[in-house]
Design a protein around this nucleic acid. Sequence first.
DNA 1: GAAGTTGTGGTCCGCTCGGTCCGCATATGC
DNA 2: GCATATGCGGACCGAGCGGACCACAACTTC
Lengths: 200, 200
Amino acid sequence: MTETLTAPRGRPREYDEAAVTTALMEQFWAHGYDGTSLADIMRVTGLGKASLYAGFGNKQAMYLRALGLYEAREVDGGVAMLGNADIPPDARLRALMHAPADTQEQTTDRRGCFLCNASADRASLDRPTADAVRAGYAKLRAALVALMGELGHGREAAERLGALALTTYSGMRVMARAGVDVAVLRASADAVLDAALPKG
Amino acid sequence: MTETLTAPRGRPREYDEAAVTTALMEQFWAHGYDGTSLADIMRVTGLGKASLYAGFGNKQAMYLRALGLYEAREVDGGVAMLGNADIPPDARLRALMHAPADTQEQTTDRRGCFLCNASADRASLDRPTADAVRAGYAKLRAALVALMGELGHGREAAERLGALALTTYSGMRVMARAGVDVAVLRASADAVLDAALPKG
DNA sequence: GAAGTTGTGGTCCGCTCGGTCCGCATATGC
DNA sequence: GCATATGCGGACCGAGCGGACCACAACTTC
C-alpha cells in the first residue's frame, strides 16, 4: 500500500523519531505532564516547536506517545520477564516485588513507574491516557495471574493474588515518591510473597 | 502567652478560617495542585487575593493547609475507625479494604485519597508536602499494624500485614483513578483479607 | 472625633504557558 | 533551472498564571 521505496518529496526530516520519542518518555516520566513545559520538551528533544507540532500534534499527543513507548518497553519488558520460563516462577515474582524497594535503596531514581504516575495524575483528566493506563495494568495483571497459576494456585486464587501483586506494586511505586521508609516497601513485598509462595 | 481575651485591633476579618480551609481541601482534593488556579481558589473561598495571601501565604502554603485538614479529618477519622473497639476487628479491616471499590461502584466520586494523590503528584516536588504525606501514611500504618495484632498476628507478621494493607489501599486508590475494573479492586482487597484473617 | 491598625476588593505586573505563523532551507520531479 | 513539497528555527500571540500593590472600609484605642 504505502510507497516506501520512492523517496518522499520535500525536505527530509533531520531528527530520529524514535530518539525523540525516547526523550519525550524520559521527560514526562521524570517530571509528569504539568511538570514539563514545551520549553523543556524543546530542550530535551532539540527540536523546535514547529517540528514538534507537525510531527506529534500537541502536548497531550506527545504525552500519549511517551506513555505508549513506556508500555512497549517497560511494561512489555516486565511482562516478558514474568513469563520467562528460564527463571523459576518464584524468582520472577520476587524480582518484580522487590524492584521498587531495590530502586529506592540503590539508586537516586525517583521517577517511579510512569504507568502508575499517569494513573494518579493524568488518567482522571484525559480519556485516552486512562485507556492506555488501563491497558498497561491489564497486561501486567494477566501476566501476574498466569504466574500465580504456574505457582500452583487455582483459578480463583490466582486471580486474587495476581490482582494483589499488581495493586501492591502500584502502591509501592506511589508511596516511594513520598520517600516512605524502604522497610515498609519491603514488608509489603514480603507479605505478597508470603501469600503467593508455598510455605512462605 | 497570647492575649485572646482583648479584641484584636483593626478591622476584623469577615471570613471563617475553618470554612475557607475546608473549601481549599475540597478544591485541591478534587483537582490537585496544578489543576487549581488562584482564580479557582478565589471562587470556592469567596475571598480576594489579598485576603488569601495575607491569611494563608502563597499557593503552596494553601495546599499544605488543605492537606493538613485532610489528615486531621479523613486520616485521623480512619485511624479512629481502625481502632474502634465497638466494632469487631475483622469488620474494621474489611471496611477499610472494601472502601475504594465501594466508592468506585456506588458513587461518582473520583477524587480518590487526597493523601495518595499528594504522594503521587506533589510529594516528589515539595519537601513539606512529602513530610506531611509520610506522616499520614505512618499514622495509618501504625493503626493497621495494631489492628493486625488484635487479629492475633505476632509482631513480625503484623508489621508485614499492616504494611501490605496500607500499600494495597494506596494502590487501589491510584488505580481507581484510571477507572480500573472494580473486580480487580475487590480481588486485591479480598486477597489482603485472605492473608490477614484466620481461615479467610 | 482623631489616630492607628488591620482586612478587603480590585487592579496591575512580569512572566510563562501552549500553540500558531512565517520566511527560509533542503529536498524531489520535471 | 524551476516548480513543488516538506522540514526547520524563531518570532509572535492571546491567555492565564502567581503574586504585589493600593485605596478604601471597618474596627479599637485614646
